[in-house]
Design a protein around this nucleic acid. Structure first.
Length: 194
DNA sequence: CTACCGATTGACT
DNA sequence: GTCAATCGGTAGA
């Protein structure tokens, strides 16, 4: 299936975050392919969002968010990595955080990387899926419209695509914790939290 | 240089 | 539910 191209990402983060649900995130490297369906995302927006890393202005870390859409913004938090897909337009820092996948391809590879057997423990969190797909700082700023990392497929249709909108995970109250910017597939058992 | 702290996870009560 | 691990980004002296 064809990777989604620039125009998909060149929209506001909320629209992209919702539209990513049900599509497939594919990671290819020397060890093989690992992939899963995106079942949970969050949006970080340019205006009125103190939880956005870019809310403090341009820094060395958040600079990928100020670049063109369709690229990865990968950062470390504690011992984990998080993958964001930059959206909107250059100079307007918005991104969609990938929070959980339903594992579909390369299950044994992901099990080995995670050190867990259970399907539900492979990609049910932003740090978990980065470990399962071998995503780290080496992919920061990389285009996500071509191998080794890209998104493909059509969104789920019908009842399976029912979307729940809630508040984002892990933000302190003053960082916009009340904003309805988290999205997940209502019927998926692979989301990080309910 | 130091101090603080986080868009997390896993182990434990 | 609670809490520690562990490291780099950021601000400030």
């Amino acid at each position: 299936m064809e990777p989604l191209s620039r125009s998909f990402f060149a929209r506001d983060a909320v629209t992209v975050a919702r539209d990513l649900l049900g599509r497939k995130l594919v990671r290819i490297c020397g060890e093989g392919m690992a992939a899963g369906l995106i079942v949970e995302t969050e949006a970080y927006v340019a205006e009125g969002d103190p939880g956005n890393h870019a809310a403090i202005g341009l820094t060395a870390r958040n600079s990928p968010m100020f670049g063109p859409p369709g690229h990865a913004y990968v950062y470390r938090v504690h011992l984990s990595f998080c993958l964001n897909l930059v959206t909107a337009e250059e100079g307007r820092p918005e991104a969609a955080l990938i929070r959980a996948l339903e594992p579909t391809d390369g299950l044994e590879l992901m099990r080995r990387r995670r050190g867990r057997d259970s399907l539900k423990e492979l990609c049910s969190g932003p740090g978990k899926l980065c470990q399962a797909l071998a995503i780290d700082l080496a992919l920061n700023r990389a285009a996500v419209m071509e191998p080794p990392l890209f998104v493909t497929g059509q969104p789920e249709a019908g009842a399976a695509s029912e979307i729940v909108v809630t508040t984002r995970i892990g933000l302190r109250p003053e960082r916009g914790a009340h904003l309805p910017l988290r999205f997940y597939l209502a019927r998926s058992p692979y989301v990080s939290r309910r």
